[in-house]
Each structure stands twice: as C-alpha cells, then as structure tokens.
Amino acid sequence: MTRSLPQSLALQRQLIQQLSDGRIYSGELLAEQAGISRAAIARHISQLQSYGVDIYSIKGKGYKLSAPLQLLDAAKIRHYQTAGMAEVLLQHVTDSTNSQLMRRLQDGQQLSKGSVLVAEAQTTGRGRRGNSWFSPFGANLYFSMYWQLEQGIQGAMGLSLVIGLAVAEVLEQQYLLPVRLKWPNDIYLADKKLAGILIELAGQSHAQCDLVIGLGLNLHMPRQADQQISQAWTDLQQHVAQPIDRNQLIALLQQRIVLHLRSFEASGFQTFSAAFNQRDQFLGKMVCLSSGDKQFCGLSLGVDSQGGLLLEQADGAQSFYGGELSLRELARG
C-alpha cells in the first residue's frame, strides 16, 4: 500500500518516473507536464540529486539519468508475494525505514507480523553501533520488517545471524552467488561488504517484545559512493549479468525471512548454527574483537549453538555475544 505524498514529493516522484527510462527530457517538456515553471523543475532536480539520484543536466537538451531506473511498485511487489504474506508499505523518501516502523509502533498502530516497509531513499539511514548508512535514491534496498517475539528480548539471541542467513540463501538461489556472512550482522561478497542488518527491540526481557528488522542491501551504487563509505564495499549488480528486479527481490526476502523467523521461534538458533558456519567469512582465521578500549584476539571457530562467536585464545575457547562488539580479521605479516 502507498500513502499520499506531499506535493513536492509527488512532483519529484513524477519526475523520476518520467526520467526512469534513461532518455533525455527537456526542462520545458517536464515543466509543461508537471504544470510548474522550468525554474521549479530545476529546484526539484537539484533536490533529487541531493538524495543521490544520478541526473545529468545537458546544456541545450535537458535532463537525463545516468542509467535507466526501476522504481518500487506496490502492484508488482504484490504480484511476486506468496499467499499469506503481510503487506509491504512503500515510501518515496524517509529518514530511516527502521525509524518509520518504530514510530508507527509508538503511535499505537497495529502491524501484522511480517509487515515490511521499504523506501526509495533514506536521509538518515542507520547502521549498527550508531554508524550512518549511505542510502542514495533508487540504488539499493532499504527494507524493514516488523515481528513480534513471544519469548521476549532474551529470546532474540542469534537473531541477526538468522536474518543474514535468510538473505544469503535468497541471493544464492536467485543469482547463484557465493555469499558469505560476517558475525554478527554483515553480509559479504568477494571479501567486501554487500549488506548490513540492524535489529531494534522494544519490550521486556522475559515478555513479548516488538522487533524491527532492518536490512540495507547494496544493489547498484552510484559513482560517488566511494566518497561516502569508509570500508571496502560491493554491490549486487557488479556480480549479476541481468538487471536486478527490486520488486521481486523484496517479495523473496520477505518470504524467506518470515520462514526463518517462524523456525527460530520454534527451535531457537541451534538449528541454524551449521548453516551459518558454512558461510562464515572468518571461520578458521585469526581475528580481533573490539569493545571500547578492550581487544580479544584469537582463532575464529565459528558460532556456537546460541549464536555467540567462539574464539580460541591461549587460555582456551570462549564465546562472545553481540552488543557493541566489532569484529575484524587480524592483519597478517
């Protein structure tokens, strides 16, 4: 379902739809179709560029996207959804899909388990540990799902690994890619970060709690991405020959994540540990875990039955659990 947009966002959406085929359109034609001045068109184009839309202004000719763009489409997503899946809500531009779902919960809105909110762009996308998430318009997937966990917050241990596994399985099956997982919340391809997961919880430790499960997945990053991202990254389109259908991918991810969440509720993480370890980016490698000014270095033995990272040090093996821990491979040499 889509909600009515403020006039400025509706006009920007109209402009993007017009330009999405990758052809050149004159400012005069765009202004005539929108019923506004050419100067107003220029202002809206500038605003779209600030969202990360790669639009060229060609002197004497008009405006053109650097490449054709597939927009999110509620009807197409519904076409790809399987029976029984909850609704997918679409946003044009939002601050953060996770924040949007959290506000709906705080406002007392009733959401169905498995409901998803996606956006074309985020203005303040968030990653784990307070990091920002680069979220240009139409380039990637900004996806948040609502779930209710009967076991409470304590029952969520290992959940980010389960979500990562669901995403990896979809990408493996749909695109035949050797996806890897990095504890506790990253998805890797060709030794570079492809996606990140952010799970936010609201509730009590031993009572029913609400979850918002956020996924940021790089699909087709713009050229300026290197200026915005400090770590090695990749996107899906670099590894896939055919164009990526974002609307289909949203439906596939929703279905697989819901399937894994139901299994997780019934059996906990232990049924997923072997599948995670098969895809573990750092299994058998020397790594360092950081927490503030503390560091723990050793040999990564994968994850245990509760989703903790098993690290072999001089005094034996020890499991570490999420929180504010950051994992890096130990530099060689």
Rank of each mutant, 00 (worst) to 15 (best):
121 A>L: 11
172 E>C: 01
211 L>V: 01
211 L>W: 04
309 L>I: 06
89 L>I: 15
282 F>H: 13
210 D>N: 15
24 I>K: 12
257 I>A: 01
302 G>I: 01
291 S>Q: 13
285 K>N: 12
172 E>N: 01
251 A>H: 07
61 K>Y: 09
268 G>A: 01
175 Y>E: 01
84 G>T: 05
79 H>S: 07
19 L>R: 10
282 F>T: 08
272 F>S: 06
252 L>Q: 01
192 K>C: 12
247 N>I: 05
17 Q>G: 12
94 T>I: 01
265 E>I: 05
162 V>I: 07
243 P>H: 12
288 C>M: 08
230 S>G: 11
317 A>T: 12
314 A>G: 12
252 L>M: 08
101 L>H: 03
194 L>A: 02
50 S>A: 14
293 D>E: 14
198 L>T: 02
255 Q>Y: 05
320 F>D: 00
248 Q>C: 12
249 L>T: 13
120 E>N: 13
215 L>R: 04
270 Q>P: 10
137 F>C: 07
318 Q>P: 06
21 D>R: 13
101 L>K: 00
166 A>D: 03
11 L>N: 08
107 D>E: 15
318 Q>E: 12
64 K>F: 00
202 A>L: 04
63 Y>S: 09
251 A>W: 07
317 A>G: 09
87 E>P: 03
192 K>P: 11
331 A>S: 14
16 I>H: 05
321 Y>Q: 04
201 L>Y: 11
315 D>T: 15
253 L>R: 00
244 I>Q: 07
332 R>Y: 12
104 R>N: 10
122 Q>G: 10
280 D>A: 06
46 S>H: 15
48 L>M: 06
210 D>H: 15
253 L>M: 01
65 L>H: 13
168 A>F: 02
319 S>E: 14
121 A>Y: 06
252 L>G: 00
101 L>Q: 04
92 H>E: 06
287 V>C: 14
139 A>D: 08
304 D>S: 06
309 L>C: 08
102 M>N: 07
184 P>L: 03
62 G>S: 02
92 H>D: 09
65 L>N: 14
89 L>Q: 13
147 W>S: 00
195 A>R: 05
13 R>I: 05
115 S>L: 09
193 K>Q: 02
251 A>N: 09
84 G>E: 03
96 S>E: 01
203 G>N: 06
43 R>A: 15
312 E>W: 09
45 I>S: 04
49 Q>I: 04
235 D>V: 02
124 T>P: 10
156 A>F: 00
91 Q>S: 11
30 L>G: 08
86 A>W: 04
138 G>T: 05
174 Q>E: 14
200 E>T: 02
276 F>I: 03
246 R>K: 12
1 M>V: 02
226 D>C: 08
109 Q>R: 09
327 L>A: 09
44 H>S: 15
166 A>C: 07
146 Y>C: 03
75 A>R: 03
167 V>M: 05
55 I>S: 05
303 V>G: 01
